[in-house]
């Protein structure tokens, strides 16, 4: 395996008595795309949110390019988070700013770039997701797929080492899913390290290096996409796959 960019070591998350994540170990190598599947409530989104401490892990650590994000001060945390781009199921674009403003904000305020520099970079990123012509549009004037691509541009503009995708297409109308997946494929080709939680099995087969199946807060099984999809070892994986295939 290449140098690990993202490493989860013995990660646990409990809400009161409820154990959501139990002893998760996961390494994502540089340029690797790891795809996470599993039934709802299996803890996959929580795992993703623990990576940038939107959710505080109960114990265990998360290393980003070797640096421990779980052991840093609040100020350092903001800097560390710049290394992790996150894309949410609900987009969460800022409704009071136009597309380019959304992509510029953290560049200026968290990264300290000048406004001109940030704008140039923002336009470049919007171009990359195919939305340069929408740079002045307010989020309410964009379709769901366009909003999600702006959100991807917002994360990319900060030059992250790893991109986290939390069900990026679940809130989209079916005909808009393709445009977002195309952007993700393009990212993959350019060598971005990616951890993706999603139900798009076709995309996983096509683009993932590894697929992880989670259930009940643990990693049940992992392997090559072909192996997992055609010949799952664990009974729980088989049951899940037959359910989602219908």
């Amino acid at each position: 395996m290449t140098r690990p960019m993202l490493e989860l070591v013995g990660l646990n998350k409990r809400f009161g008595d409820l154990t959501v994540l139990h002893d998760i170990h996961l390494r994502v190598g540089q340029g690797e795309l790891v795809f996470v599947i599993g039934p709802s409530g299996s803890g996959k989104s929580t795992m993703l949110r623990c990576c940038n401490r939107l959710e505080e892990p109960t114990s265990g650590s998360v290393l980003i390019d070797g640096a421990d994000i779980t052991a840093c001060s609040p100020r350092a945390l903001n800097k560390m988070r710049l290394n992790l781009g996150m894309v949410f199921q609900g987009f969460h674009l800022y409704p009071h700013m136009d597309a380019v403003g959304n992509v510029m904000l953290a560049q200026v305020k968290a990264l300290g770039r000048s406004k001109d520099e940030a704008r140039a970079r923002a336009l470049e990123m919007l171009d990359r997701v195919g939305l340069r012509h929408k740079s002045d549009a307010m989020p309410s004037a964009l379709s769901g797929g366009q909003q999600q691509r702006v959100a991807i541009a917002r994360a990319l503009a900060l030059d992250p080492k790893v991109m986290l995708f939390d069900e990026p297409t679940s809130a989209l109308d079916p005909e808009l899913v393709g445009s977002v997946l195309a952007v993700m494929k393009d990212l993959r080709t350019s060598g971005m390290t990616m951890l993706v939680v999603s139900h798009e099995m076709g995309f996983a087969r096509e683009a993932a290096d590894r697929v992880i199946f989670m259930d009940g807060g643990v990693i049940v099984e992992e392997g090559q996409p072909e192996a997992i999809f055609t010949n799952p070892q664990a009974e729980r994986t088989r049951a899940f796959l037959s359910r989602v295939r219908g």
């Binding site: 609040p74 903001n78 710049l82 996150m86 800022y94 009071h96 904000l105 305020k109 968290a110």
Partner: peptide, 29 residues
Amino acid sequence: ARGQWEAGRATGLGFTQTLIHVALPQAIR
């Protein structure tokens, strides 16, 4: 919405920065 705070924090903005640039403009509106 909570997601607005999360989006701000996830892009490396501090609490005060997220408050001023993300939450407050929406709250005032």
